[in-house]
């Protein structure tokens, strides 16, 4: 009994520092947000006034909010499937390429290490009309100049392309790790039976990498809601909120308009979205995957 008590005490002591930071910067702020979202707290109300669900009502009628949510869905749909497919392709080739394995891995992975804000600077120059790389390339083919970041219908696609460039190499690493866990004998057996490369991929590689695919898609989905640094440099959410995303809208609401109640309500929506993504992982997809 005494030994058990000592062991319990030791475990809690080991956990104490991590738990402290976890409570202070994850759980306490979540509680703060939930509470403040029920108050009117902006520049016109120095002392927060309890208004119930008013912030949420205003929010759902806010056109910018709807726009931002739609943009975020498009952003996720554009970046997640394509980024993952590309990452898988990269990994399969970079795993046993005949030539240039190290070169491939490095070339695909390096964007991961570049800060989003620097990525934004680089791609701003690529997308700038007249002087940018894109304009110059297109002008060789006689295509008229396109203002990628200034056209509402194009700006999201320009961002999606940039994010795929930045993320795919990171996801590739997880697939490379996943590939190491597939037994070589499976491939040898397939080879002996004369099975084609594509069939091998479809019947062996892809199904056995399913746990990795699930993990990567959760990371990618979460990233679609987390990555907003580039907006600060490239568009500030414009033109006309065409590239605005939820987290950037939270930033604007909190630190440009100083509407704290609304910023809290928006943060609650963000938390709900992230919990929904996690729930899909736990209850939906997880059951249909075969772990070997």
């Amino acid at each position: 009994m005494n030994a058990r008590l000592r062991r319990n005490g030791f475990a809690w002591l080991l956990l104490l520092p991590s738990l402290l930071f976890l409570l202070l910067f994850t759980f306490y702020p979540i509680a703060l947000t939930l509470r403040l979202s029920l108050f009117q707290a902006d520049l016109s109300t120095p002392e927060p006034v309890f208004t119930g669900l008013d912030n949420y009502r205003t929010m759902f009628q806010d056109e910018v909010f709807r726009k931002v949510m739609g943009n975020n869905v498009l952003f996720a749909l554009g970046t997640v499937p394509l980024g993952i497919a590309l990452a898988l392709l990269m990994a399969v080739f970079a795993n046993k390429a005949l030539h240039g394995r190290g070169f491939m891995r490095s070339a695909f992975f390096y964007p991961t290490l570049i800060p989003m804000i620097a990525v934004a600077n680089i791609w701003l120059f690529i997308y700038t009309p007249e002087y940018g790389l894109m304009s110059r390339l297109l002008s060789w083919f006689g295509v008229n100049d396109i203002n990628w970041l200034g056209t509402p219908g194009l700006v999201m696609w320009a961002m999606i392309l940039m994010i795929i460039w930045k993320e795919a190499g990171f996801f590739m690493i997880f697939y490379l790790a996943g590939l190491q866990n597939i037994s070589k004998e499976l491939y040898e057996a397939a080879h002996v039976d004369g099975v084609g490369r594509f069939t091998v991929f479809r019947k062996i590689t892809f199904p056995l990498l399913m746990p990795t695919t699930l993990f990567v898609s959760i990371v990618a989905l979460t990233n679609a809601y987390k990555l907003v640094d580039h907006l600060m440099i490239m568009t500030r959410g414009g033109p006309n909120n065409a590239s605005n995303l939820l987290l950037y809208y939270i930033y604007e609401t909190a630190f440009s308009y100083w509407d704290q109640g609304m910023a809290s309500a928006l943060t609650v929506v963000m938390i709900a979205v992230l919990l929904l993504i996690a729930a899909v992982q736990f209850f939906g997809l997880d059951r249909r995957i075969h772990y070997n």
């Binding site: 809690w12 738990l19 976890l22 910067f25 994850t26 403040l36 987290l247 909190a254 704290q260 809290s264």
Partner: peptide, 29 residues
Amino acid sequence: FGGSSIVFLLFLVQIMIPADVLIFPNYNV
């Protein structure tokens, strides 16, 4: 130790809701 699975779940929340999205409440903290 007792309660390990509950504490484990608590930490899982940090992965699901990273500090990046809590910028505004953490500013207040």
